[in-house]
Nucleic acid binder design. Structure first.
Lengths: 342, 342
DNA sequence: CTGAAAGCGCTTACAG
DNA sequence: CTGAAAGCGCTTACAG
């Protein structure tokens, strides 16, 4: 609020309505024990004065702010390019709004290790709780949160072994189904384009496990040569595919651990004169919006970022409201979407 | 904060340090007139007690919250798919963080007209000011902000004629340069894929003007048949291109008002057996990250969303701090990036 | 059903 | 350089 005009407070409303300011408080908080007539008077005064309760005062008195933090230990620039994360944020925002909560964004600006996002959040001391995007480097941040007695739920896996509240999609099963699908099509040599080898996030580890399990079920021994690394970008998918094609015994199918790398793979294959899926099949992961529009439309695993965000937010609100949590870890379904690239 | 543990306040710190709590206040606010020795004592007490000043109390006393709102009168789902907007938000976030401010997100959930985003913001009465994404329907929201004496800066054009503070890229010049580039290549019939005809945003109107001006300079009369509408999505670009190709005298170049539609156009052209740029040139707008990766790499107009966000945020902070604003409307450069699609 | 008192955790003049 | 007082705008028991 600008300081240009005098603020209108609960006392102004009380004077205007001819009641005590405590009564005004009752009205704005929808409490019982107010005559209909008094309530109307107060409402009228509120409207004519254009009164809005001051959140800072309210937070102070209630020890609750109706603000939840969203801690993203990434550079904002990176954050805003990850469609799955954005879907999560979007549904968290919706869920918060529905309860009259607002979202306070806390990202890690610049090139630090992400701890800053937690620190700024804690320093502010304003939110009732937080949703945090779990990263391998998150242990220190989570400790900070614990140490300051915050309620929080993590989006992702229990990477930092804090054993608190987690929600994530069933990456393992999703990857397993994708692999079984390829197996069913007769493929025996399925190349993997994994995420970066360092700082591995739980999700990719689980995907790899799902892949290996499916292979094992089919009695196939995993050939480490078939696994190459990318960094989630499209160009990295192209480079990874180049390596796979250079193998003495190249794969007949490629399973990329995200859609953008899968798209890069398809480009590379096309420019090498190979047809997808006739010569080589490709499967992605995430089902980003562009996947269905791709040429050929991409077979992929749909993760409901929307669902992850919603469930995590609901969990946080239960924590804040002191309601019981059934399970500290929620795993949401991942669904194989078969299109034309496989 | 959870209520589980007793909060540590300024008074606890004072007791621990053996000073009055006002002195603690001085230390945490880095004020002069504190002996180095006292300061050290207080700092020590702060650390051992893990004290953090309470933002609500501070806001109340200071009448300032160090929170700025970001009002996006869109559905969060839409918001999170617009790369240019995301770039703006990302730089606003960075700018805010650098000053110790936090960003409070206020989006319009669901299918209302966007006014809700403003209303929730105003109802909260917590921010020191706001950055608002300007939309054609924003007039009522801006009035609400005015009526409640908020400082705010709009990202976009003065669509609602409130004549306050605005920052946007130079869409007109950018479109003019793109058009001149095409004219220079010898094109005389340049098709336009415009944004949606209803609810036109200032930016597309300006782009159209830039196009027409460039045409006029070259002595070419604008042929309305060459303008078709899309909705900024890739598929709409394909459909629009289909219409353009069906013309009795089709264009030799297409200028799409965003990159995604330009990509859709290229797909359509390719699948119609046409080569880009040999048979028909294509130019986009925005320079989203995927533009450079496209095949062929897309000629486009780079708008610095990052710059727009930064400048708007800086303007808002000046307003909040009572510093003078040189100009209420800032126009930032748009730059033509020539790649292989033209 | 309504009012008076105390307090939330800070900051801001004002003394000394 | 440091402390005592008052106040920011609400809510929360407690009376009546």
């Amino acid at each position: 609020m600008t300081g240009s005009k005098k603020r209108v407070t609960i006392k102004d409303v009380a004077a205007q309505a001819g009641v005590s300011y405590q009564t005004v408080s009752r009205v704005i908080n929808n409490q019982a024990n107010v005559t209909e007539k008094t309530r109307r008077q107060v409402q009228h005064a509120i409207e004519t004065l254009n009164f809005r309760p001051n959140l800072a005062a309210r937070s102070l008195a209630r020890r609750r702010s109706n603000i939840i933090g969203l801690i993203v230990p990434y550079d904002a620039d990176y954050l805003f390019r990850d469609p799955n994360l954005l879907a999560q944020i979007s549904s968290i925002d919706a869920e918060a709004n529905a309860r009259g909560y607002n979202l306070l964004l806390s990202t890690a600006a610049g090139s630090d290790n992400g701890l800053e996002a937690y620190e700024r959040f804690v320093r502010n001391q304003v939110a009732d709780g937080a949703l945090v995007v779990e990263t391998a480097a998150g242990a220190a941040g989570n400790q900070l949160l614990n140490h300051n007695n915050y309620f929080y739920v993590s989006l992702g896996y229990d990477l930092s072994h804090t054993r608190k509240y987690f929600v994530h999609a069933d990456d393992r099963r999703g990857a397993g189904e994708a692999t079984r699908h390829l197996l069913q099509k007769g493929h025996r040599r399925i190349g993997i384009i994994n995420g970066p080898p360092i700082g591995a996030v739980g999700a990719t580890q689980e995907r790899l496990t799902g892949y290996m399990e499916a292979l094992a079920e089919a009695g196939i021994i995993f050939d480490p040569c078939l696994m190459v690394y990318g960094d989630y970008t499209r160009p990295s998918g192209q480079r990874a595919t180049e390596k796979l094609l250079a193998l003495s015994n190249p794969p007949t199918a490629i399973f990329a651990f995200n859609d953008r790398m899968a798209m890069g793979a398809i480009w590379k294959l096309k420019s090498a004169g190979l047809r997808v899926p006739e010569d080589i099949a490709v499967v992605g992961f995430d089902d980003i919006p562009a996947a269905a529009d791709f040429s050929p439309p991409l077979t992929t695993v749909r993760l409901s970022g929307v669902q992850v965000g919603r469930v995590a937010a609901q969990m946080l609100f239960k924590l804040i409201d002191g309601e019981p949590i059934e399970s500290p870890e929620v795993v949401l379904p991942a669904e194989l979407i078969v299109r034309q690239s496989s």
